[in-house]
Design a protein around this nucleic acid. Structure first.
Lengths: 314, 314
DNA sequence: TTGCAATATAGATTATTATCTATATTGAAT
DNA sequence: ATTCAATATAGATAATAATCTATATTGCAA
């Protein structure tokens, strides 16, 4: 016959009450802190003593003093409660991977490769939701200031915000033209020549525009902007339609159509830039966010470098 | 509001059942080993799952497989049972004198014979620790008021504290002088004569001084105190150095040097006193303390009387 | 399709636990 | 001697835990 453990070590409730009495050093005070009546606590302590088979406490000059046996039981009760606390924490951790959301805010261009990172991560944690917000650089900075998301992806991260930053992938910006464009016939092109041609520019606030303007400013040049367009796809199609030339992330060329497009061999290009993952230094990352970060660090570069190497315009 | 722990981690019985199911890998087999019916085990597992808030197991090809949560709970249940097993062992050890401490507070003079009592006791219970505190009468009374120790040893016990008392050994106080002292030449000496000689007195608070002063008060005499000394050993050596005479416990003469010392044949001496073991009547003695008390009552007198009979100054 | 073994669910019963109100007991202070 | 605070004990109640019998469900083998 298997014994009923609690018959000789007391019930969990009794152990809880024991610890309150030990903490307060008084039956009455323990009762108050547990919102019970004094006789309840007295009786439960009596029952616990009976279960153990020894007195747990006594009175010396009106002061409650625990016996040696009582003190050992207190020690054990603390151990048992600790075990359950650790269980709670462990289960809490497990639950977080069974539900919850990973929030990413990314600048427009990175929408081409982020899915390649998310794919394997979602396979590993199938119950995790993903909230992917795509915006330009200014919008993404604003969200970061508000602390809305777990991660933020930039090619040109803001310098004025205190945050953790992981540089994890190259992001070269290259010049493109339609293959019938006059500059497409030249084997070498100066940046000045590039600036004479009608130029299709990304919108203010975008990381691509920021990088182009920085380079031109550095060379004291100015683009001959013919049109401002808010979409990498639209820029690609405008160039295919012979509306002008542009400088654009090489990643944009990896995905989707590129028929009739050529890369221009400009001396000062490609603009050397990288992709950065950023996250708050003041906000503790969720377990899910930590897991995603580890995933990026472990597998991210490989996954994406393979994709870029497939580009026909390298 | 203090939570009821078992409402969210299950009862001890449920944890016992969980471990049986985990051990047998089957509801039915676990039920058999616990001498319960199968539905009992099924229901208890269901209730445990509800308490935790997650499924604990599932069936894969008719085989019972624990979930991650279930396995964590099994681990915790094992930890908890281990804690209680260790408690059982500790309590068993306490009951069988395999651990624990005997606490004695004794007045200074008794330090000469207490080890002769403790020796055989420690042989019998080699795993018991002894905490021996040596102080004068006042210090020992203070500890007794605070209920710090198991036993207190006095030659003149306090009358104002309610306690159990065991008179277990004679403690005669005798007068001593250097053999060249004038009084050492007399075959009989009155107390009054004794009081004319330079006298070396123990410090206030000591039992010896208390006894001497009581006797002198009774005869309306006063000692000619030349020096107050806080140590029996120092008094002995001072008498050997012809600095004066003194009254001292005969036990002190039993141990250590006594060269050149004689006992003075004073009419009113020896002062008839005894050694007492005292212990609290309001505090229940530990098992160890009870065993020591029995040891004293059974063997104490014999052990020590033999030692005293060896004294050269009887 | 039937039979069987393993498990889950429904409903009922008994025992135990947890708690309360009322009152007695104890010990110290006044 | 009386009062007060702290605790223990007696008796009662409600809720919960533990367990059982009966039956339904599931999945596999023959």
């Amino acid at each position: 016959m298997q014994s009923r453990l609690h018959a000789h070590v007391g019930t969990m409730r009794q152990l809880e009450i024991l610890l309150a009495v030990h903490d307060k050093g008084s039956i009455n005070e323990a009762a108050k802190s547990l919102f019970l009546t004094q006789p309840t606590v007295s009786i439960q302590m009596r029952k616990l003593s009976d279960a153990i088979g020894e007195p747990l406490y006594q009175y010396v000059n009106r002061r409650l003093v625990f016996t040696e046996v009582g003190l050992e039981l207190v020690k054990t009760a603390v151990e048992v409660l600790d075990s359950f606390s650790r269980l709670d924490m462990t289960l809490g951790n497990l639950r977080e991977f069974k539900s919850g959301t990973l929030r990413l805010a990314v600048v427009t261009t990175s929408k081409y490769f982020i899915p390649h990172l998310l794919g394997p991560f979602c396979e590993q944690f199938p119950d995790i939701d993903i909230q992917l917000t795509i915006g330009n650089r200014e919008q993404t900075i604003e969200r970061m200031k508000q602390g809305i998301d777990d991660f933020y992806v930039f090619s040109h991260p803001p310098r004025d915000i205190e945050a953790h930053s992981l540089e994890f992938l190259e992001n070269p910006l290259v010049a493109i033209a339609h293959q019938d464009h006059p500059l497409a016939k030249q084997s070498t092109i100066s940046l000045a020549q590039l600036c004479e041609a009608p130029f299709l520019m990304r919108e203010k606030g975008s990381g691509t525009r920021y990088a182009i303007e920085s380079l031109l400013k550095q060379h004291k040049l100015q683009a001959n902007i013919k049109m401002t367009i808010e979409s990498n796809e639209a820029i690609k199609h405008s160039v295919m339609s012979k509306l002008g030339i542009s400088i654009i992330s090489a990643h944009t060329l990896t995905y989707g159509g590129q028929s009739g497009l050529v890369r221009l061999p400009v001396n000062e290009l490609p603009i050397d830039s990288h992709w950065f993952f950023m996250w708050s230094s003041s906000k503790r990352p969720t377990l899910i966010a930590s897991a995603f970060l580890e995933h990026i660090e472990t597998n991210g570069r490989e996954l994406l470098q393979n994709e870029l190497d497939k580009s026909a315009l390298v």
